[in-house]
Design a protein around this nucleic acid. Structure first.
Lengths: 195, 195
DNA sequence: GTCTATATCCCGATAGAC
DNA sequence: GTCTATCGGGATATAGAC
């Protein structure tokens, strides 16, 4: 436990710049899905080398962007009714940011390679999300909203798969209503003897 | 209608070479998911330029590989009981070919960009697969194997999404039993008042 | 902190000899 | 049909001045 002070004086500017670059990168990626460092540099009014001064490598910047997106997504589904609704909400929100979805899809595909810098990030992410959703389903069971004849972890993994798979289909055909489809899946997870 | 003869003489070798390259490329991609042309060239005992002599460009070769995989997949699920089982079978078969799955995931992500050479291929593919699965579900309904309280196209899209999404999760964590998960999804699509 | 300039890299594609 | 050689484009990363 080292004593850490809030950065001040000469540091402040650097910290803000970092934030600014991150914001800009998020925007750029949200629009195009992928872009050379140069483009982010231009937008933020810096040289390419300037950007690398803050993030040691391209991959580092990418990771930071992903983490930020995750954070924003999580915040956006605070207080949802259940996992299904939370995912539906997220998905609906993502429908405004095709580029970001594309970035995510492309990057998660690439991160599939164990030697990829983001491999750990994604592996952890799915593990954690699954656990969270399982808890949500279990709570839904207690209130009778979720069927209990199928394994909760199976349903959780399926929900995540649905979410990812639909994003792919949606990118190929933007007329698809992802949110409605997630809701359909959610109903498939309701107890069989209702209605 | 031009009169076409089966290639012979000097052509024969070329045709075989093409096949050989295609086979090799399929193997290489099945193992690594992506590779420079050079690697396929090495394996097939040709120079990189030699490979390009048969397939005008890298993308062309990639497309040919994808088509071949699709063909093999379709053949493998002839005579399945329903769409769910067909997909489960395919998925089980894919579990022996991580690299190919990776190639597919990576390429479909890239093909999301409308200007990508494989965009049309994937867009068509999902359209066609959806239609086929819808027919399967409708037939399943008539025999009482599939619930009829949800839209068949929704379920079809979800099945495809499940399949794609699970592949991603599986690549990140190979201990996942994709086939079992697909079967779980299949049960979610069964009529609610059974069992 | 920020820039300019440049070192590398990697790879696909092309030209042209054999 | 096949090779060698090479061009060309596009990026990332680094060195070093200011």
């Amino acid at each position: 436990m080292t004593t850490q002070r809030k950065p001040r004086g000469p540091y402040r500017k650097g910290v803000r710049r970092r934030e600014q670059i991150l914001d800009t990168a998020l925007e750029v990626f949200a629009g195009r899905g992928d872009a050379p460092l140069q483009e982010i540099a231009d937008r933020v009014g810096l040289s390419q080398a300037g950007v690398l001064h803050y993030f040691g490598s391209r991959e580092e910047l990418l990771l930071a962007v992903l983490r930020r997106r995750d954070t924003l997504d999580l915040a956006a589904c605070e207080g949802s009714d259940g996992p299904g609704e939370a995912v539906a909400r997220t998905v609906r929100h993502n429908m405004d940011q095709p580029g970001l979805v594309r970035l995510f899809v492309a990057l998660s595909a690439a991160a599939t390679d164990p030697s990829h810098p983001a491999h750990g990030f994604f592996a952890d992410r799915y593990r954690d999300l699954t656990a969270t959703i399982v808890r949500g389903f279990e709570s839904g069971r207690r209130s009778g909203a979720v069927r209990d004849d199928e394994d909760a972890e199976h349903m959780a993994r399926l929900l995540l798969a649905v979410s990812d798979g639909l994003q792919l289909q949606w990118l190929l055909d933007p007329s698809l209503d992802m949110a409605a489809l997630v809701e359909t899946f959610d109903r498939l997870c309701a107890p069989p003897n209702d209605g």
